[in-house]
Structure formats: C-alpha cells, structure tokens
Design a protein around this nucleic acid. Sequence first.
DNA 1: TAGGGGAACTTGTACAAACAAGGCCAGACC
DNA 2: GGTCTGGCCTTGTTTGTACAAGTTCCCCTA
Lengths: 243, 243
Amino acid sequence: MAARYEQIAAELRDEILAGVHLVGSQLPSEAELAARYSAARGTVRQAVAILAAEGLIGSRQGARRIVLGGERSQSFAELHSFAQWARSKGHAVGGQVLAQRRRRAASAESVRLGSAEVLEVLRLRTLEGEPVLLERTVYASWIASAVEGLPSDCESVTQALYDRVGLVFAYGEHLIDAIAAGTEDARLLGVRRGSPLLRQRRITTTQEGRPVELSDDRYRAGSVAFSIRNSIGANPLTRLALP
Amino acid sequence: MAARYEQIAAELRDEILAGVHLVGSQLPSEAELAARYSAARGTVRQAVAILAAEGLIGSRQGARRIVLGGERSQSFAELHSFAQWARSKGHAVGGQVLAQRRRRAASAESVRLGSAEVLEVLRLRTLEGEPVLLERTVYASWIASAVEGLPSDCESVTQALYDRVGLVFAYGEHLIDAIAAGTEDARLLGVRRGSPLLRQRRITTTQEGRPVELSDDRYRAGSVAFSIRNSIGANPLTRLALP
DNA sequence: TAGGGGAACTTGTACAAACAAGGCCAGACC
DNA sequence: GGTCTGGCCTTGTTTGTACAAGTTCCCCTA
C-alpha cells in the first residue's frame, strides 16, 4: 500500500498525462486539492513536490503551479539497469557474458570498493539484436559468488541480484563522457576503431553505503543517449534510445 | 535571508565536508538535531532531505542516516551555465561569438520555442585558453534583443541575462550522447574530423514554462564529462573537468 | 551458546494551525 | 486612459502532535 501522498501524486500525474490539465495551464491550488482528496495541505505538498522533482510541474511562490509537461522519468531504476530501462521502453534486450574471472583488486579499485579481491565481468548487451553496449564491471568480493551464480545470458543483473539475495542498488555515481573506440571495443560492438562511443563509468552502493560494483559501460554512438530533466530544485535522469 | 532549513542544511553540509561526520558514520538523529538547532523536527527533515537529494547522506526508515559522501553538487546552475560551473571549479574560462543572425524558425524550432523568428548564435568557449566547447544556440524572439546586446566575448550569458533583464533559467531538458566531429566542428575545436565529441542538446524554460533557448553544445572528448550522483529518491547532476 | 522476543529508538507519514512572502486583479485615483 | 494601491489568493516556512513502520540491541530462554 503506497503512501497517501504517493497516491495523490500518481493521480495528478495520470491526469496531466491524460490531458486533464493542459500544458501551460494552472493546477488547482493546494487548498482545492486538499479538499478534493480529503487530505491535509502538507500531504498535498508532498505529492506536488514529487511532480515538481520530475519536472512535470513548476511552481513560484504566490502564483499557482503550472503544468510544464510531457513525459515523466522513472529516473533511478532506468539509469542503473540497462535491462529494466530497455524493457520499460518496449525494446528487445539481450546480453551475454564474454569473460569472467576473479583477480586481485588494483589499488584504486580496492580503495573504492573496499575489498582486496574482485570479480571482473565483460558483458555485451544488445538492443533489438544489435550490439550496443559493452560493460566492463568489477564487483566487490562479498557479492562475487552471487554474480557468478547467474546465467551467462542473464538479462537483468540488477533484477536477478534482487531476487536472489535481496540486494538493492540504492546510490550511484556516474561519469559520462565520449571516447574513441579501442581495438577490442570496435571488434565487439561492430564499429570502426576510433569511432565515437558514449562512456558511462559508475560506482554503485547499497543503502548502507557499502560499495557493490565499479563499471565502465560503452555505448555505440547513435544507439543511446542520456536524458536529463532538471529544475532549480531537482534533477532526474533517464536514458533514451535514438531512432 | 535564507530559510531556516536551508541554514541547517548548509551547516550540516559544511560539517560533513569538514570531516566532523565521517563517511560511513551515522548522523545524529532528527530529535538530536532539532534540539541542537532549536527547530522543529519537520524543519530538520527538510534540511536533511536536501542533503539526501544531493547524495550526501542516505536514509532508511528505522535506522539513523548515514553519511555517504564526499563532494556535493550545485547541480542546476552548474549544469546550465558553462561559465558558472567553470568559475566555481577555478578554471579560466573564455568565450567568443563567432556568428549571430536572426532568421525564420524551422518548423521543429517554432514548435518547441513557440516563436516564428529566432536568433541563432554560434559560440566557441575555452577552458584555460584551449577551445573545448562549441555552442550552437537558438533563442526565442522575445529574448533575442537582450542577447544581441551582450558583448561578443561575454563570459556568462546566463549571468548577464539575469543581471540585465532578470531572466532566470528554471527548467531544462538535456540530451547527452556522443557523435563524430563534422568538418566545422573539427576546424573550430582543433581536432581531427571524425574524432569523438560529447554532445549535449538542451531546451531551457523560465519558471512560467516559457521556452527560452534551444542549444546544441559539443565538447571536445577528454575535456569535460558529466557527473551524476543519484539515489533512489533523487538525481543531481554536475559537470567535471578531466585531467 | 545460539536464538527468539521485546523494548527503545529512529525515520516515515499525516494532520492541523499560523504567519510570511509574493503574485494577481479590480477599483480608485490622476 | 494609464497607473497605483490595497485586498485577496496562493505558495513558502515553521511549529506541534500523533501514530506507523522499520532497526538495533539487550536480555532472557532453550
């Protein structure tokens, strides 16, 4: 059972996406919404704060909230899990582990992951059958055996780890830039050496702040872009497929 | 005068960055903080919500909040304004308008900006004297004359527009991907044709939802990366310079 | 000693009330 | 006709209270 303010947020979001509240128009005042949902004003404020963080509505003190529009973003799950994002967008997703081995952590890795031994995995992910993403991931030793137990063509590692050991990826730090494809990148992704790739390096931790993985993901140019909707207060992020 | 919860958030942030609360350790409980700052628990909750959104601390119901991390992110201003970001990081920033003209809006532009005529500006930005960013920006007609009034080597357009006409960029939508440098890109940025560039396309609007500009920014690879710190609840974003 | 059961603690949710700050509009005034 | 002002509306901030839900840890029991 979701919280009351989440229910209200969901109803308002649906109304906006359904066109009940047109883009550019004013949302009902907090007092009206509170009356409509028989909730306190504070509860309504929590609800609209969610929508504002999603970039769906804007607000200024003194004036009514304005519908800014368009699509919403699920943000975190989408950013973290390639498979979850792809499936939610209706894409056919595939994956294959190409190499996997345990080794001693390099010094930078051991500092960031907090473990001396790591599990290194090289995965190739496909979208509609086309290779689009090369993942070089290093897992901390405490989660390594669970990762080794996954099938080599596991679609969603995030989902599988949640189902098997209850692991939740709660926080992530991502670094996004562009680089030229190296020899191995080019061969596996089916592009020419030196062609542009979109690189996402990330470290993910659990809710307690324990590091789980360190990853270097490389997307073929033209296949995927990152989309960020931000406002003065908040900055959600999603990933989009290019036509 | 900032709000009380902002002051508390700032103090806590400073304490965390100063090492008073070590990474991985527990933050004082809401009740303790409320007593310390002589504020209500609700006010303290607003303060810690800010830090959680910045990715600085994590929280789970029932357990004390945990200090997750290191640097904080100013997020919006940094994402939007190249100059503001660069200056805050201590970089020497420069800029030059290479071309500027009014023209009729293409159909896609007129739909997104809501104006039939637009001002097109081509700007080259430098970091420590090196060209790193090529901006192709299209402004809506209602702001065009203010932009034309700016000096051609204006460092921060965002700041200048705020100072002159009180314009505040409140919402942005950004699309980040990698592309190969075209002939003009390569010449102006001083790289070889076909070498990778990090592209950021964005549309920015005011607080009322009025579109201001549409831009296509291209960064030389290796000069700048985007950094995103996200949590289940929130996703701030910053930009980082590479060594 | 290992495990279970609670009690105490902590964060999450919800409600109510009051005042501050800023926007909006209509009516008064020049 | 244009402008200005004042009142009303709406959002922002703060406090207080109460209960729900999850975590932690100690103590007691088997």
